[in-house]
């Protein structure tokens, strides 16, 4: 039976070392290592290719490309639209309220003036009454168109609601794309390194009931009363 090349080489190496032939021992050692180095290099090459392929896979994933190039700027634009639209509607409503408040104040002053006149004179001044009716109708119309304006200004709810819905979808798509990129181990490491939450940092409106967040004004009042405010 033909001895294995490895065994032959090993025996030759032993012989070279025993006889003190250093140069032969060196070349035999290299010959022994060579297949292993080749295997290691092959493995490294394989890994490199895998990493390269997964990264080019990320970049060419049409969904992620779409999200970063179009959906994210689109989401920003949509959210900006919500700010503009809601501000516009609030001002539109407030302008109508200011107008109607003024009309109501004038109307009330007219009613009071007429009442004083009737009580004092105990007689109906027809001309004064006609003026009063005319003014009342005119102010009533002002209030009515103001209320219509308030009604119409509420359209922002429908429009911004749709826009926010779409933005939530985009964020969801991005989240799913990112989750496929990140292993659970990385997520665990990342969350372990998250800085502690500052309890005094502004949070904005409470979107749902949470422990340690007051939900009604009376809770705030109770808490402040317990602190002597």
């Amino acid at each position: 039976m033909q001895p294995l090349p490895l065994l032959t080489t090993a025996r030759a190496l032993c012989h070279a070392l025993e006889t003190g032939d250093q140069s032969a021992a060196d070349s035999l050692l290299t010959a022994l290592n060579e297949p292993r180095s080749r295997g290691l290099l092959r493995q490294i090459a394989e890994l490199t290719r895998e990493v390269h392929e997964s990264f080019s896979g990320v970049v060419s994933d049409p969904k992620l490309v779409e999200i970063t190039q179009h959906a994210m700027p689109d989401a920003r634009e949509r959210l900006h639209y919500v700010i503009v639209k809601t501000e516009e509607s609030a001002h539109r409503t407030l302008a109508a309220v200011e107008e109607m408040t003024a009309a109501t104040d004038i109307m009330l002053a007219h009613v009071q003036g007429l009442e004083e006149l009737l009580v004092k004179d105990q007689a109906v001044d027809v001309e004064r009454l006609q003026d009063f009716f005319f003014a009342s109708k005119s102010h009533g119309q002002r209030i009515h168109s103001g209320l219509t304006e308030v009604l119409m200004a509420q359209e922002y709810q429908d429009l911004t609601g749709q826009v926010i819905k779409r933005t939530i979808e985009i964020v969801g798509e991005l989240e799913r794309g990112l989750v496929t990129l990140i292993t659970h181990e990385w997520i665990d490491k990342a969350s372990a390194q998250m800085p502690p939450i500052d309890p005094l940092a502004p949070q904005g409106p409470a979107l749902r009931a949470q422990a340690n967040v007051v939900s009604v004004q009376s809770d705030v009042d109770d808490l402040l009363a317990s602190l002597g405010v």
Partner: peptide, 17 residues
């Protein structure tokens, strides 16, 4: 809109009326 208990306590300590 800030409604965390810590925030309300902090405001009270800072002298809010």
């Amino acid at each position: 809109a800030e409604a965390r208990r810590e925030q309300i306590i902090s405001a009270a300590e800072a002298g809010v009326n």
